[in-house]
Design a binder for these strands. Structure first.
Lengths: 162, 162
DNA sequence: TATTGTTATACTCTATAACTATA
DNA sequence: TATAGTTATAGAGTATAACAATA
């Protein structure tokens, strides 16, 4: 459990990551925004899924997901097939073209990082990656378990015990 | 020097920081977007400065800086006084009100981090903060020294040897 | 002629709310 | 009635380009 000042400093550094994210976005080709890359990446890592699942993984509203997905579908990078089990739902699948596209995009950003982080050790890169994954996990937990907020108790919460 | 796969993984984790940034933005009061917090924070840390310097610290275009600054100036959180040495320029200064406001905002986001990262050790928090600072520095260097990109040689580059 | 800063315009990302089709 | 997904609308962040004032 750290001090307030340390959290404030972490907060500033997290905000500053925006600059890095913009650098990464700048190496992407036109008509290929970050949202598209995120969709392709998650479909590649987790396999076929429905909209609602993707929205959860992206941690954005489904309306946002819907627009990102429409964008990549328009370009033939994914397919939206009806879910036989639930006609309201659509199953998203990466197309071969989308897979190729993702590889190219990954290469672009990986090359940028390789250039900028050329003096980082393998361990440092792995360390940062691990801590960021853990950071994300710490925030995700609190989405599932709404957390230690003082609020009126409702009977049917699906809250996980801490 | 790490492998391509490791850079790709780091890239994904950096993108995922967006979710954390959105969580932090959500605890901010209305009419106080992240851009305002960034302006106040930098003025507090680095003292009075002109627009162009702030733009460089924010790592965004000066047009963007101009809008963020106008927003916080409208609320009385900073003052813009003419620079006696250069009449085109304006010196930005945090007002007492802005200082108070910044303290309140810092408290809000620090509390959020304290809650989410309650099971992190002091060292882990410090470690992540340090690595993020170094990440940012590695990208900043390449702004100053345009980098090892293969491009037609122009005579007067201010390039630093690798 | 170059630089500082502002404004206009356009694009991306996001959330809320209204809507449809289905469960 | 509730849920899956789409679309309309609005607000924030950003970049480019055109502009005014000054160096």
């Amino acid at each position: 459990m750290a001090e307030q000042v340390q959290y404030e400093e972490l907060m500033r550094q997290l905000s500053a990551v925006g600059a890095v994210q913009r650098s990464m976005a700048r190496v992407l080709p036109p008509h290929c925004p970050r949202g598209s890359v995120a969709v392709l990446t998650l479909l590649h890592r987790h396999g076929d899924m429905r909209m609602s699942t993707l929205a959860e993984l992206l941690d954005v509203d489904m309306s946002v997901t819907s627009r990102h997905v429409a964008h990549v579908a328009d370009r033939g990078w994914i397919e939206r097939s009806p879910d036989p089990a639930d006609k309201r739902s659509r199953i998203l699948r990466l197309t071969p073209l989308g897979r190729t596209q993702l590889q190219a995009l990954s290469r672009l950003t990986a090359d940028l990082l390789a250039d900028r982080l050329s003096d980082w050790s393998d361990d440092d890169v792995g360390h940062l990656t691990g801590l960021l994954a853990r950071l994300r996990a710490s925030f995700d937990e609190c989405r599932a378990a709404p957390a230690a907020v003082v609020e009126p108790v409702s009977a049917d919460t699906t809250r996980t015990p801490v």
